[in-house]
């Protein structure tokens, strides 16, 4: 009975903070509500006795993704100002689509009739079992996805650096170190305007 109540409390917490995260009009508050929602999901994992997943959820999401989101908010937004309200038409149709989808999925889940496994079995996830199966090269091992995902993380890391790297020419005008080379080749002529310089850069990159 107690665990049931805990489950419904956690679910209400997750759903309530999730709704607030997608409806608040201040973007920073939205990020904080998302943080609460993710902590609630971690609590749900604790309730389901998969402590390792809960720990990973807290470390990666709460410690990584949300912090990243908050930093990007600070870099790009006025975090105190309110976002514009979505138009009524869009809200109405979004609510309709969401309710329809939820009703559809609800009906499918309710009608399906899952048969649980033998109830005597308890579900325990020791970390050692996860580690052994993760690095197993035999039939049910996950070493290939493990390696693939490590390559994906490396690629994502390099890609992030390349994408977010600041381009060399700034908006102040002609880069300082380029000017002497041009003068050497073309001789002294009128310096390029900012527009020409920018268009030239766009062609070369």
């Amino acid at each position: 009975m107690g665990t049931q109540i805990i489950f419904y409390l956690i679910s209400a917490f997750v759903l309530g903070t999730g709704v607030l995260a997608v409806t608040t009009r201040k973007i920073f508050r939205s990020a904080i509500w998302l943080l609460f929602s993710l902590v609630g999901v971690a609590a749900l994992y604790f309730w389901m006795q998969v402590e390792f997943i809960a720990a990973v959820q807290i470390i990666v999401y709460v410690g990584g993704v949300v912090v990243l989101i908050i930093f990007s908010i600070f870099l790009t937004q006025k975090s105190g100002s309110e976002m514009p309200k979505p138009p009524v038409k869009r809200t109405v149709f979004a609510v309709l689509a969401v309710l329809l989808g939820f009703a559809f999925s609800y009906r499918i889940i309710a009608e399906y009739g899952f048969t649980p496994a033998t109830p005597s079995k308890t579900f325990t996830v020791p970390v050692s079992a996860i580690g052994e199966q993760m690095l197993d090269t035999k039939q049910y091992g996950f070493v290939l996805p493990f390696e693939v995902v490590s390559m994906l993380l490396l690629a994502a890391m390099i890609g992030c650096i390349v994408i977010a790297m600041k381009a060399k020419p700034t908006e102040k005008g002609i880069p300082v170190e380029k000017l002497p080379v041009k003068e050497l080749i073309n001789g002294p002529e009128k310096p390029l305007t900012i527009q020409e310089e920018l268009s030239m850069e766009e062609k070369t990159t």
Binding site: V14, L15, G18, V19, A21, V22, T23, I27, S30, A31, L34, S37, L38, V41, Y61, V65, I69, S72, I73, T76, Q77, M83, P86, R90, T91, F93, A94, V95, A97, V98, L99, G101, F102, S105, Y106, I109
Partner: peptide, 26 residues
Amino acid sequence: TALFFIGMYGLFTRRNLITMLMAIEL
């Protein structure tokens, strides 16, 4: 399922890229 569709609602109504990313995380 409810959490999924809450995220989908956020994805439909928001027009800010960061908040859309948050909806996808949900």
